[in-house]
C-alpha cells in the first residue's frame, strides 16, 4: 500500500511543498496575534510609566495614553480572531466607553491632586492655573 502523496519520506532532491498562499483567515489570525502582543506591551509600558513618573499628574499621562491605545489594540486583536457579529458589538462598546471615560477619570484624579496640593512645583516650568 502506497502512502498518500506528500506524506511519504522525501526522495533526495525533491522540493518540499509549502503552501505559501495565505488565506484571509490566516492573515486575520496573524494580524490579530500581532495586535494582541502590541496591546499587551503598551499596557506594560503604561504600568511601568505609572510606577516611574515622579508625580500624580505625570502618572495620569501614563494611565491615559498608552493604556487606552493598549486596550484598543487588544480589542482589535480580539475582533480579528473572534469575527462574530455579537462579539464585535460588545468590543465596539468597550472601545467607545474606554475612549469616553478614561479622560474623565484622569481629569477627576488630576483636579483632585492639584486642588489638594499634591503637585511637585519643582517639576513645573509654568503654572497658569496658580496665577490670578
Amino acid at each position: 500500500m502506497t502512502p498518500p502523496a506528500g506524506t511519504g519520506p522525501l526522495a533526495p532532491g525533491q522540493p518540499v511543498a509549502v503552501d505559501w498562499a495565505l488565506s484571509p483567515i490566516a492573515v486575520a489570525d496573524w494580524l490579530g496575534a500581532v495586535s494582541l502582543v502590541a496591546g499587551a506591551l503598551l499596557s506594560l509600558a503604561a504600568a511601568i510609566g505609572v510606577l516611574r513618573f515622579p508625580d500624580t499628574l505625570s502618572r495620569m499621562h501614563a494611565a491615559t495614553k498608552p493604556q487606552v491605545l493598549g486596550v484598543l489594540l487588544l480589542l482589535l486583536g480580539l475582533s480579528l480572531r473572534l469575527r462574530t457579529l455579537s462579539d464585535l458589538g460588545m468590543i465596539a462598546l468597550v472601545g467607545i466607553f474606554q475612549l469616553a471615560t478614561a479622560p474623565v477619570a484622569a481629569q477627576m484624579v488630576g483636579r483632585a491632586a492639584y486642588r489638594s496640593g499634591r503637585v511637585d512645583r519643582r517639576l513645573l516650568d509654568v503654572d497658569e492655573l496658580a496665577e490670578p
Binding site: 516611574r52 513618573f53 495614553k65 513645573l124 516650568d125 497658569e128
Partner: peptide, 26 residues
C-alpha cells in the same frame, strides 16, 4: 496622534534616569 503620544509616553516612562518636567497652561 494617539499612537504617537502613546509611544512617546511609553518611551519617556521607560527611559532610565530621566525625570520629565511639565507645565500647566491655560
Amino acid at each position: 496622534e494617539l499612537v504617537w503620544a502613546s509611544l512617546h509616553v511609553a518611551r519617556i516612562g521607560m527611559q532610565p534616569g530621566y525625570t520629565p518636567r511639565s507645565a500647566i497652561i491655560a
